[in-house]
Structure formats: C-alpha cells, structure tokens
Simulated assay, not measured.
Amino acid sequence: MNTSSFEAFRLQALIEGYDEALEREWAPLTLLDMHTHPFAAKAIVVRGEMWLTVGDLTRQLRPGDTFELEADVPHAERYGTEGATYWVARRTG
C-alpha cells in the first residue's frame, strides 16, 4: 500500500476495494480494552507508538509498522507516552 502521503494511502485503499480511509490520532496513554469493529481494517502507524493485542499476541508498533484486522476480531489497543497517529483503510461487508 502506498504510504508516501495520506492522500496516496487513501487512493490506494480505494483501489484495493476499501470503503474509506481515515487518519486516527490517539492521546498519550490511551487504553482501549478488548473490543471489536464491524469492519476490516488495514493500517500504518505514522507517529508515536502503540501496542495491539489480538488473542495472546501483543505487538509493539512504531512509525512504518502496519497491521490488519478482519471484522469482528477481538483486540485491545494501548498508546504510548506521546500518543499515536495511524492511517487506516476500512472495509465493511
């Protein structure tokens, strides 16, 4: 996926069949307990750091790292001391 700019990321996501692309910014030390989303997601971290937990696996993600989640997959998120920003493409259905 093209990550040279948000607009390039968004256009590539639409070409790949995603419904939308968003820039999500998270405040420092935000913690989101286990939850799900009704959409699939493909994202790249562009600022800060976060930890993503799926099942028994927790990944630390920094700028340039990517992650994907299918719809309805339980996961938890924790954001670092500087918060984090990621670009995410979403697809429903």
Rank of each mutant, 00 (worst) to 15 (best):
R62G: 14
G64H: 07
E68A: 10
E25V: 15
P38F: 10
Y18H: 09
T53E: 09
L69P: 02
W87V: 02
R10E: 15
L69H: 01
D65N: 04
M34H: 11
R78I: 06
A41C: 07
R91N: 02
L32P: 03
L61M: 02
L69Q: 07
R78D: 03
N2T: 08
R10F: 04
T81C: 07
V45F: 00
R78C: 11
R90T: 07
T92Q: 14
T92N: 12
K42P: 02
T81V: 10
H35A: 07
V45L: 05
G17W: 10
T81H: 14
P28L: 03
T3H: 09
A76S: 14
V73Q: 06
N2P: 07
L61E: 00
T81R: 14
R62S: 14
F9Y: 05
W87A: 01
D56C: 01
Y86R: 00
E70P: 01
R59H: 15
E82W: 13
E49H: 12
T30C: 07
Y79G: 01
E70S: 09
P63T: 02
L32H: 06
T36F: 05
E25N: 15
M1L: 09
T81D: 14
T81A: 15
Y86M: 03
G17K: 07
L32A: 11
E16Q: 13
A41I: 00
L14E: 14
R62W: 00
L57E: 08
E49Q: 12
L32N: 04
P63K: 02
V73F: 08
F67T: 01
D72R: 10
D72V: 12
H75L: 05
L29R: 15
T66Y: 00
R62P: 08
L31Q: 13
W26A: 09
L69I: 03
Y86E: 02
P28K: 12
D56M: 01
L11M: 15
P63R: 05
H37V: 06
